[in-house]
Structures are given as structure tokens and as C-alpha cells.
Design a protein around this nucleic acid. Structure first.
Lengths: 154, 154
DNA sequence: GTAGGACTTCAAGTTAAGTTTAAGTCAAGA
DNA sequence: TCTTGACTTAAACTTAACTTGAAGTCCTAC
């Protein structure tokens, strides 16, 4: 493939550092949506390099594929995204990023306040009353979580 | 159970907000190591509340169970940990915590430098050359990762 | 002493994010 | 034209962190 702006899955893999199986998987999750040629093979656009780059970066920050797909879905459908489309997406992304970092810092400072005593007591340190109980890293099934009332403990 | 410092699994569940199945699971991972009574039922110590609290807090920061178990393994075996044992553990923990937060902030500032252009280009933005490519959130199998050389892209 | 809830083990199911394998089809250069 | 590497799908496997269910045992209060 060298017809200007069109890439095979292998070429896209080379340019992003992903495996072809990962790219196919991302397709099932809506990160990219390639066309097909006459023979049924995937044909990607140059813009897909950027979509995958965004996904890789966002993953480094702990975002799930679903969250990333939702962000990418705000890019204009039909036409190739232009510079200001990407800037808008980046701005949006940065807001969510800042929230995550701020949350980590709040957790840390709550912990700091509690380090002197070394207690790590759920009630006394109130790390769980920090109002922040959402578990952001989607780690397997943990359905009901954190709505018990804590009484005193050692 | 009300014999002072000894707890059944149900009581421990009530005090930590965990389910009994989660506590049994954590036992298989070495987070707690309860004794057994004559009938074969688990009997926990008060200190186990603190071990589980530590695990919950560390999980909020994105640590894996394995990492948490490793930290807890540094508590003195045999005797119940005292205040300075917990303080030492907390100090250790804070170091690792600070590293994680610092890494997020480094990633963010690299991204910031790249937001003006909105490019998200792997080569130009060099988010992947930041020297930080470890993927800290152990998310499924991703065996080989990021040792391709990137050439120029759009 | 017995009913019932709390406890036991073990196996199988769940989600996320991919990989691996098998069996077959497509495409591009010699 | 043919061969060979790149591509296709589908199903099964992997790890982390648990949950759910089945089938049976323990304990405690009445």
C-alpha cells in the first residue's frame, strides 16, 4: 500500500507500535472504524494513527478503552478531523486528566495528615470519608462497594 | 465472637466494608493469614482490620494486590505490629505513592507542551520518548510493548 | 437438642484488555 | 502464474480482582 493516505493494518501497526491483533481488538471497541477494500481487507486513514496515539497516551494515564472511545466519538463523523478538532479533544482530555491527578493528590494529602499517628484507621483517618470513594481504575467486578457504616475499631 | 481481640470473618467484613468472599480471596493472596478455631472457622486479630484498611487505601492509589501483599510482608511476623511498625510501612508507602503521582505529573506536563499544536504525534510530541514507558496499571496481558522505532507520520 | 444463620470449600463465572492459534483468503513481486 | 507473506475470522486462553453458587458443616440462642 502506498496510495498516499491509505494504510493497511500492518502499516498502521508499524507506525503506532501496536500489534495487528490489538488494532483489530480496538476496532471492536470503536477506537477506529476502517473501510474495506474489494477483497475484504481493512484500509485505514492517516487520521487513524492519531486516534491510536491518543488511545495509547490516555491509557498511560489510566483511562479505560471505553472512556477513550467515548472521547474519540466526539470527533466529527464523516470527515477527517482537523487541527482544531484535535485541539478541542485535547482540552477536554486535559480537564479529565487534571481531575484524576487532583484526586490522587487529595488522597495523598489526606494520608499525609494521618501518617504522624500511623493509624490507618478507617474511622479516624477518614480516608473513606474524603467524599471521593469512586473507584476509578476499573479492576474486575466489585459491584457493591463502600456503603457500610463504619463503627469504631482499633 | 466477643472474646476481646478476636473476630470472625463476618465481623471483620462488617468493620471493613468488605464482603466475606473478598476477605477469603485476600487471604489466598497473603493480605491476611487468620488462625482457625477447633471447628475449622477463621479467627482474625484486630490488627487485620488495619491490614485490610491499608490494602483498600493502596488500591485506591492503583497498587495491585501483589504489591500490597509485598508491602505488608515487611511487617514483623509473629507479633502484632505496633505503632512504629505501621509508621515505617506508611513512610515506605508514601515514597512509592509520590513516585506514582510524580509520574502522572510528568506525563501531564509533556502533554501540556504538546497541546498548543494539538498534534498528539508520537514522534513530534515524544510522549513515548519521555523515558517512562512502564505501564503501571497491570491491565491484562500486553507482553511485548513499545520497542519499535517510530518513523515519521502525519 | 434443634433450628437457623454463619461458616466452610471448591468450581465456575465476570470484566478488561489483549494474545494466540487455526484454518483459510488476498495481493504483489519474480 | 505462482508463491509467499500479509491478511481474514472465530474461538479459546491470559491476568487481576473478585463474585456467585452448590453442597455441606458449625455454633449459638431458644
Amino acid at each position: 500500500m502506498d496510495h498516499a493516505n491509505i494504510l493497511t493494518i500492518g502499516e498502521l501497526a508499524d507506525r503506532t507500535g501496536l500489534t495487528t491483533s490489538a488494532i483489530r481488538f480496538y476496532e471492536t471497541k470503536g477506537i477506529v472504524t476502517p473501510n474495506r477494500n474489494a477483497g475484504g481487507q481493512r484500509r485505514f486513514m492517516r487520521a487513524d494513527i492519531r486516534r491510536l496515539s491518543f488511545a495509547l497516551i490516555a491509557q498511560e494515564f489510566g483511562f479505560t478503552i471505553k472512556e477513550i472511545a467515548d472521547q474519540l466519538a466526539t470527533l466529527p463523523p464523516g470527515r477527517a478531523p482537523n487541527k482544531s478538532d484535535w485541539q478541542r479533544l485535547s482540552q477536554q482530555f486535559k480537564v479529565q486528566l487534571d481531575e484524576r491527578i487532583a484526586r490522587m493528590e487529595r488522597l495523598r494529602s489526606t494520608l499525609d495528615g494521618c501518617m504522624g499517628c500511623g493509624c490507618l484507621s478507617l474511622t479516624k483517618c477518614s480516608l473513606y470519608n474524603a467524599g471521593d470513594a469512586a473507584n476509578i481504575y476499573g479492576r474486575g467486578p466489585r459491584f457493591i462497594y463502600g456503603d457500610k457504616s463504619f463503627s469504631e475499631e482499633s
